[in-house]
């Protein structure tokens, strides 16, 4: 459960998290370009999730499949849910919400990797 795709799924949201962090500090809500960037990160997560689930199905050794699947499917829901929740928020709180969401996503990828290797 490691490799360039998994690394990208961890690093991309972490790097993007700097953007809402700056917006939070300078007291701004997210703008259009940040939404586009979020879309790109979500696409990366979808590609990672498909790969992870295919790897899960084709893996023959025993491991906590249910936990793994929940982490992988759960991480896909984080950014859309956060976006929906702040759809009408015009303050910097919207940036703070995206910051939290972008930190939760890589955490869940790492947890999925840990479940994969039996931690």
């Amino acid at each position: 459960m490691t490799g360039p795709l998994a690394t990208l799924a961890i690093v991309a949201p972490l790097v993007l998290a700097l953007w809402p962090l700056v917006l939070l500090v300078i007291n701004r809500p997210p703008g259009r370009s940040l939404w586009v960037a979020l879309g790109v990160v979500e696409v990366i997560q979808v590609v990672f999730a498909v790969w992870a689930l295919v790897s899960m199905v084709t893996r023959t050794t025993d491991f906590a499949r249910l936990e793994f699947a929940l982490y992988v499917l759960g991480l896909l829901a984080i950014l859309p849910a956060a976006g929906w929740w702040i759809r009408a928020e015009k303050s910097r709180a919207a940036s703070a919400v995206l910051l939290v969401a972008l930190l939760v996503v890589p955490f869940m990828v790492v947890r999925a990797q840990q479940v994969w290797s039996g931690v």
Partner: peptide, 12 residues
């Protein structure tokens, strides 16, 4: 609203 939005997300 405001800080409450962030609080709800952490709770969620």
């Amino acid at each position: 609203r405001g800080f409450g939005r962030v609080l709800v997300v952490v709770y969620a």
